[in-house]
Design a protein around this nucleic acid. Sequence first.
DNA 1: AGAACATATTGATAGTTATCAATATGACTG
DNA 2: CAGTCATATTGATAACTATCAATATGTTCT
Lengths: 108, 108
Amino acid sequence: MEYSHKKYVQVAKALSDETRLKIIDMLSCGEMCACDILENFSISQSTLSYHMKILTESGLVNALRDGAWMRYTLNNEKINDVLAFFTYIMNEKEDCICKKCGKIDCSS
Amino acid sequence: MEYSHKKYVQVAKALSDETRLKIIDMLSCGEMCACDILENFSISQSTLSYHMKILTESGLVNALRDGAWMRYTLNNEKINDVLAFFTYIMNEKEDCICKKCGKIDCSS
DNA sequence: AGAACATATTGATAGTTATCAATATGACTG
DNA sequence: CAGTCATATTGATAACTATCAATATGTTCT
């Protein structure tokens, strides 16, 4: 298996905020629109829009326009991929990065 | 099950850097000292020390002084906990956060 | 004790992030 | 097409992050 570490930095950044972790948690139940999500927090509408952009650009969340509303869902394929990556790097394996070329930097 | 989302923000931040993801990957094989890790990157010694501090403060990595050397290992207990948390929030469950009090903010 | 080695801390800096108010865009409704 | 509602973008700002060179701390060896 061959993963690009750089590719997952963006996902980890998307997970690096309490509000965004809670949004992901909320979406695990199913689809929600922006206004429903907003109701659950004490943040401005523009801040929520910013967070939703971070989440959708990371690939963790799908955004679908439905008339005036945006409908958000979790991207389960991406989520499984991300969980597999974290599990992979954190567990011992045959083809460990530490056995690769001297400068790990070269294998990004 | 009851998780504090805030508690995992620090972990996600620790994972939000390509160098740190690679360090975790390297440590999955087993213990390494700082100088061995440093050999694999093109960064300064002080920058590595900074990254190791972020990783140990997140709880993902254990640091053990051995004479002049620091010996680093993955903290498998923490890692399992973190993976369980991410898996939990990303999957549907009975006691979903979206069914809690109106302002999610209150339940951090 | 003094030299050499391994790691940590400090101070400076450039880049990134989270937040809001204000404004813009786009969609539905009468 | 004018008004309203839902969401996005912009501009400003304060806080945080990654990096390095220089320096400090702590350890081992002679």
